[in-house]
Design a protein around this nucleic acid. Structure first.
Lengths: 226, 226
DNA sequence: TATTGATCAATACACTGTATCGCGCGATGC
DNA sequence: GCATCGCGCGATACAGTGTATTGATCAATA
């Protein structure tokens, strides 16, 4: 075809200039939609209409991208309220909300030290509400709240994923895992576990989370008012 | 070279027959030595003098291998002692010890529901020591201990890795992260955080873990004796 | 003994993160 | 205004991943 009648390439919408911000947002969108496995430098790049190598001008590697993603979501995690108890509780709940919005966070949180600006701001929002705790006590107690929350949401998300995976084809649960557990219990070697599973009421995720958090906060209260 | 004078292939040492057990042990050795990234089906296979596809006769994919690895290490996690408090504490500490032996566990624990035989046995060892807690309270409280422990060791390992990474070339910390944090604090936007970091005593990992665990156990005590 | 069936190794494929290389374009010096 | 330089960017390349498929080999069976 001659040039004259060959159509020009479809005018791309100006291809907004790249930025760390845009890269991270694209990565987060991918992760929100299809999980962490769906985040590859190539997919992020194509989502931005760009070659993969282009990203290396903004980040040094994939690890850095993941760090940036985590830090970005820390913007959604802020403590609020009056008094140490409300502050710690609101922090834990904000964290849980963020993870429920971005399930992939469960795989990343706690995985490496968070020192980005938003993560620091999150810490500040916690620390600044804890004047009523002795300065030497603050760190271990905040660490405890963080540890509990991260562990709790991790398990929560893990269960949610498992349910989703076997809920789509519920056969799998009913045809394999259910009977497997039944057989395991039938051996009689797990009496205490079987008793709990059968006899105890099954609490939902909200209650389970709240109970553990209340216990931890009560223990903290006992410690700082000692 | 003619067949007659061509040497026979070196008689391999009988090539012990494969088994799920041997595969998992090989994978764990790799992970212990070089981290989870070093565990690829190909590397596991070559460690066993075997082609990669051979493994698929014993496992359905890599995910299953990881599940088996986690379950195998659960054999090292057993609760002991008398009374709910000792049982829960020993469980948490056994878990922590196991993770410190197998750092890669920090990346896997809590990541998906554990229903393998060893994991169930671990649960049984906990549940069977909790007769003094009402059956309906057991699950959420054990979940809380698990959540705290998983979150705590995760952060602990993360810090250890970070220290190791920047300790080998300590320059990086002293040349980049240190000054970066100093500058962050110098902005004056993180007064509470800066105060804690500067003024508070720095506890070691053991103490930090114990304090949080004690708080949680105290809170549990208050709850079940209510 | 011939055929079938299972077993297992090799090949192949799509995909990953990243190093390298060379082109083309924009800014700079005359 | 023009030539040159430098450098950012895109394409290519490579080693590695998990896994589907294929093809051969060998044992058991008809």
């Amino acid at each position: 075809m001659v040039v004259w009648e060959r159509p020009e390439p479809p005018s791309r919408p100006a291809l907004a200039p790249l930025s760390r911000e845009r890269i991270v947002q694209a990565a987060i969108r991918l992760a929100d939609a299809d999980g962490l496995d769906a985040v590859s430098l190539r997919k992020v790049a194509t989502a931005l209409d760009v070659g993969p190598m282009r990203l290396y001008g903004y980040i040094e590697g994939k690890e850095e991208l993941l760090d940036l993603m985590v830090d970005a979501t820390h913007a959604e995690i802020r403590a609020s309220g009056e008094g140490w108890r409300e502050v710690l509780r609101s922090h834990a709940e904000a964290m849980r909300r963020a993870v429920r919005r971005h399930e992939w966070l469960a795989d990343l949180l706690g995985g490496r030290p968070q020192l980005g600006p938003e993560a620091l701001a999150t810490s500040e929002s916690v620390m600044s509400g804890l004047d009523d705790i002795g300065v030497d006590e603050i760190m271990p107690l905040v660490s405890a709240i963080n540890a509990y929350t991260i562990g709790a949401v991790r398990r929560e998300i893990a269960e949610r994923r498992a349910e989703r995976a076997t809920g789509m084809d519920e056969k799998h649960w009913q045809a394999e895992l259910g009977p497997y557990l039944t057989r395991s219990f039938a051996t009689g070697k797990l009496p205490a576990l079987a008793k709990v599973v059968h006899d105890a009421v099954h609490l939902d995720a909200d209650e389970t989370f709240r109970i553990g958090l209340d216990c931890l906060l009560d223990g903290i209260e006992a410690r700082i008012s000692r």
